[in-house]
């Protein structure tokens, strides 16, 4: 088995894990997380692999639901961020030096404030909740991808077929949509998947701090921050399982992104 086949198999496994979590979250109804005081505070067992919480709710069902909320927020935020990155990256590379300088100044401005502090500020401005988290993540996560796109477009602009196209009198728009954009799609896709882990982790962090999603949307950050109160009473399963599931999801996205990059990169195509 060569390296490419191995990469493909891990990619498929990671994708299956993510699809599995989303699908099972859709299948789990509200009756699964109904409160049941007869079985509250139970450690993990066969019936409840992740244990139950202080209201007798099954932690496995809560975790899966929470993960799907987190993945949903991550998808929206990472998509918005990738779109901003694409637009600003292409503008920086094509619209001349002044625009390029302005955008690099903007990137410096964003990177100058720690991500988490910027997120707190933005989510405070929007009054917290889902909107605050999504806008905050979308506005703070684009710089790295925008830089990649800018560099790529810069390189493409001096490619021979683009130069020939220009000499043949094709318009800027024609070149951008026929030559440059198709080239950017794999980059964008990979960048989008790699934005994901950061988006989910930051969403969980900001919700954990109490500035993100409201307690009515039981995202992983909320579940973990609620379990903080029960740590000292030795109920370790409340924190351990949701956290490790989050870790696995983030890692799966990371692997997915890295592998997609390897697969789309012609330099490693023959390995």
């Amino acid at each position: 088995m060569n390296r490419r086949q191995k990469t493909l198999i891990t990619t498929v496994c990671a994708a299956l894990l993510l699809i599995g979590v989303i699908a099972s979250a859709l299948l789990i109804g509200d009756e699964w997380i109904a409160t049941n005081f007869e079985i509250k505070n139970e450690p993990p067992s066969l019936a409840h692999p992740f244990g139950t919480d202080w209201l007798g709710r099954d932690m496995l069902a809560r975790t899966v639901k929470g993960l799907s909320v987190s993945i949903g927020v991550g998808v929206i935020a990472a998509t918005a961020s990738a779109v901003i990155a694409l637009i600003l990256g292409m503008l920086a590379a094509t619209m001349g030096k002044a625009v390029d300088n302005a955008i690099s100044w903007l990137i410096d401005l964003l990177l100058g404030v720690p991500h988490l502090v910027a997120l707190i500020l933005i989510s405070f401005t929007l009054g917290g909740g889902l909107k605050g988290v999504v806008v905050g993540i979308a506005l703070t996560h684009w710089p790295s991808l925008a830089r990649v796109i800018r560099a790529e477009v810069m390189q493409l602009r001096s490619a021979e077929y683009v130069l020939i196209s220009r000499k043949l009198g094709k318009s800027r728009w024609w070149i951008a949509s026929r030559h440059i954009l198709p080239h950017m799609i794999p980059q964008l896709l990979v960048g989008f998947v790699l934005l994901f882990p950061h988006a989910i982790l930051h969403e969980a962090s900001i919700s954990f701090l109490g500035l993100g999603l409201s307690p009515h949307q039981p995202a992983i950050g909320i579940i973990l921050s609620e379990s903080m109160r029960y740590l000292t009473s030795g109920m370790w399963w409340l924190a351990f399982f949701p956290g490790i599931s989050l870790l696995m999801i983030v890692r799966a996205f990371d692997i997915l992104g890295e592998n997609l990059r390897k697969l789309t990169d012609p330099h490693s195509a023959h390995q």
């Binding site: 882990p197 982790l201 969980a204 962090s205 954990f208 973990l224 379990s227 903080m228 740590l231 000292t232 030795g234 370790w236 924190a239 351990f240 956290g243 989050l246 870790l247 983030v250 890692r251 990371d254």
Partner: peptide, 29 residues
């Protein structure tokens, strides 16, 4: 290193509390 990069900081902190402060009692909560 790759696993650490995907680990939520606050969760690791909570694990530390569980293991070193609650179970072993070596450090304050």
């Amino acid at each position: 290193c790759f696993t650490l990069a995907s680990t939520p900081t606050f969760w690791l902190g909570m694990l530390m509390v569980i293991v070193f402060a609650v179970w072993l009692g070596w450090f304050p909560v």
